[in-house]
Design a protein around this nucleic acid. Structure first.
Lengths: 341, 341
DNA sequence: CTGAAAGCGCTTACAG
DNA sequence: CTGAAAGCGCTTACAG
């Protein structure tokens, strides 16, 4: 299996074969097309490029980073990559990173404060030039300690404090769901609200409740319950809602997976989602449309959030001004709220 | 936002403050507890460690990598991180990596041959010490080119050729499903078979068909159709199956997401999964149990595959013998095949 | 137009 | 027990 590890091609390899100094070779290999004449004579330039191509020269990034004090590395911290929302955001980040000539490290923190710190330090130990947090807590204390270190960073998915962020307009998204359910005549509704420390669930719930408040309807506290953001979390939270009173006529779960968990809990109670009780989710993950009862949900630009987050960070790494962005959500109505056809 | 970037603490910082030579400091900081006496006097040893702690010294990994020609970096290549199966495997890899003092880069290739090559080269450019492929094609040609470069690597999720791999015993898993459906009396069944180049779907389908063959039942070719491994892919494939003849009495989709897509397609045709037609998936993703019709599926040890894959690679990086591993699947029976309670 | 030097931060075999 | 040297591969300001 293990083949002959041929000696790596370095600047020295090229320089020796060409009878040039490594500095000349380095200069040629770094020149932008326009400035090529300042690097070397056009003949030398061509010879260097040619040999580099032939031998497949690839600069050693460790040497470059050491010398330039720039790693072109970005650390990405997410709660859980097996959450399709975060995985999709990360895909956007990765796409965009390669446009900017940056590479990314990702890590999971499962929203555990201890892990957040350890993993962040790990990223810093790797000398990343910037960071992207997808797991920000509403309490900005931890981010303050990161900012104090002088590393540029942006938030995606969840906002926190005044740190630069690219998020979905979650409040608006929640409001759209509220207005939709109101329009269908639902006045007694429940909310599977997500984690209390994540702006996503908090803002979506707030927007939803605001829509009801504007219609003069106050949703009692026992109709709103926090939850994990996965199917199991949605299941448990829905059980709790059902245990605390008669079933509401509709349920808003702040993400699709929690909504699917709600499906499971309702099913266990003999309630048919979309018939006995309306259910809405959030994110429009690819599953939503395929469920036996297609899920009404809010489309959030997950991949775009990642793309823009990285772009924003790249700007900050060039000392540009950072402007937070709030992307627009879009309601997608399906049978889980309008019933079977 | 951007704080004062304090001068980084290097070996020199420590050496100067202690009146020692950097080499002494380096030796102390690298000594294993037992060999500490060979590094320096116990007094010097203590002084160095103390100051390093106080100043929060963190070695510069680029310098270390440059010097040692070892990066302690592992490149992980997957088709798609937003596929929960791969994301979960990756979580296992990450967990295990930190046990071994390794860090990981991940990248998506979407099973595109061009991207596979580009991303793999990108990993190699980063001077990773080893690689893990979760996107292997049954055709081992590409992996041959990687092996020729002398980089150790292992496969997870999908096997290929004789390269060291950690996979689920997919053939057995498929067989378990076949025997289950046979036991329920299904003789006319369809298969949503996954991609033809991925051992996962191929082996699962083969195992399934083998169970039927052993029972003397030959499943006609038009009952088996390839598919993408996501919900959309399962939907499209199921449409194709339904268009090519009368509905079979049961359907085996080689992964849960394809099965959910099958749910969608069946629903569009007015067929109720679990009542009009039995459906089974594969992987037992967290959603399977929560669906309105809980999904019969095969539990595959996704996270464990990742953990073991990394461990296997770590062994290879220490020149140990590599032994492929086939992990056991487990059938999980739910209402999608046994019907409503 | 090209070379020579210095140095990024570390490790390691060698002296003494 | 500790120091000094060499060097990993690169970049950059400076000479000539």
């Amino acid at each position: 299996m293990s083949a002959n590890k041929t000696a790596p091609v370095t600047l020295r390899t090229l320089a020796d074969q060409l009878g040039l100094h490594v500095s000349t070779v380095s200069r040629v290999l770094h020149a932008d097309p326009e400035a090529s004449h300042r690097a070397a004579s056009s003949e030398t330039f061509a010879r260097v490029r040619k040999l580099a191509d032939e031998l497949g020269y690839r600069p050693n990034p460790h040497a470059t980073s050491l010398r330039t004090r720039r790693s072109n590395l970005v650390g990405v911290v997410v709660p859980q990559l097996s959450d399709i929302v975060l995985a999709t955001i990360y895909e956007g980040i990765e796409e965009s990173a390669s446009d900017y000539g940056l590479s990314t490290f990702v890590t999971n923190t499962r929203d555990d404060p201890g892990l957040k710190q350890i993993r962040t330090e790990m990223m810093l130990d790797h000398r990343v030039d910037g960071m992207i947090f997808g797991d920000a807590s509403l309490d900005p204390a931890f981010l303050g300690t990161v900012a104090a270190k002088g590393v540029p960073f942006v938030l995606v998915n969840r906002r926190s404090g005044d740190y630069p962020s690219v998020t979905c307009d979650d409040f608006l998204g929640g409001k759209l769901v509220g207005e939709h359910l109101l329009g269908l005549g639902h006045r007694d509704v429940g909310v599977v609200a997500g984690e209390p420390y994540a702006s996503t669930g908090v803002d979506r719930s707030a927007g939803f409740l605001a829509a009801y408040a504007e219609a003069g309807i106050e949703i009692p506290a026992y109709r709103v319950t926090n939850s994990g953001h996965d199917a199991r979390g949605g299941h448990i939270a829905t059980e709790k809602l059902l245990a605390s009173g008669p079933p509401p006529s509709a349920l808003f779960a702040v993400n699709d997976f929690a909504a699917i968990g709600a499906f499971g809990a309702l099913r266990d109670h003999g309630l048919r989602a979309g018939e006995d009780i309306a259910v809405a989710g959030f994110n429009d993950t690819p599953l939503a449309a395929e469920l036996p009862v297609p899920l009404t949900t809010v489309r959030s630009p997950m991949r775009e959030m990642g793309r823009r987050g990285l772009a924003l960070l790249a700007g900050m790494m060039r000392e540009e001004e950072a402007q937070s962005q709030r992307l627009l959500p879009q309601l997608v109505v399906r049978a889980s709220t309008t019933g079977p056809r």
